[in-house]
Amino acid sequence: MDLDALAGCLSSSACLVTQTTSGLIIGMLLFLVAVGLTLIFGVLKVVNFSHGAFYMFGAYFAMTAYQLTGSFALAMLAGAAGTAILGLIFERVFMSRVYGADVLMQLLVCYAFVLIFDDVVRIIWGPEFKSMGMPSAFQVMPLFVAGGVVPPYYLLLIGIALVAAIVLGIGLSRSRIGKVIRAAAHNPGMVSALGINTGLIYGGVFALGGMLAGLAGALAAPVRSLTPGMGFSVLIESFIVTVIGGMGSILGALIGALLLGLIRSFGSLGFPLFTEGLMYLFMVIVLVSKPTGLFGKEAA
């Protein structure tokens, strides 16, 4: 434990700025993955254990597109669009067959695809780790804000994730499609009876969830190494986020992810040997005091 370092940091503006932005970056990427997970659970009532694979595919699609075109924007687009299509196919062909089935069955299907997707990546891109490289536009000196260090790429990353969060939040609560999606989550039978194609909605939600994870992978590709199986550790942290925030809650995923990011960035100063443990400890505290998560709804 190094509480002096933590106290020293909290009293210095430079350190506060650096650590807070570092927490926001970790949190925002996590949010993009976790929100897809929570969205799919909220509407489809399945826990998508293969969600990490979409993060992985997003990163690989982005790397390949970047190598082919040299355009960062196209790389991000490829990561997001590619995983959206993949998500749609995956849902229509496989997941739609196990709705209402035993949870164990859903788990088995998802886990099988975790292994299959990892091997697909191994076959296409090879088993060794890869790096996409930082686009030259972002190879610039970091900004100095109040003495703290803020890399411009991370500002972009936080910005994109924030936009995604706002669009999602408003879209789901205000737009007509959002209302239909929420209705389908509550009472799919009634929605279907009203002549709305629920299969399309389910496929769309799965594609959206996959796309968000893919976007996170694409955004992370320039700074994280790409390997088969890279989605796994992200998936575990996303689960912690959804458990803390409440399964099915978008606001919960945002708050949970940001809290986790800040715990990591400040925890590594104060509790360097217990940073991982702090995350789990926080999860336990939330679960004990509010078992449905911070923003989860009580079961009726």
Partner: peptide, 9 residues
């Protein structure tokens, strides 16, 4: 996967 907090520390 991520070392940001280690880097800033």
């Amino acid at each position: 996967p991520d070392y940001t907090e280690v880097v800033t520390k």
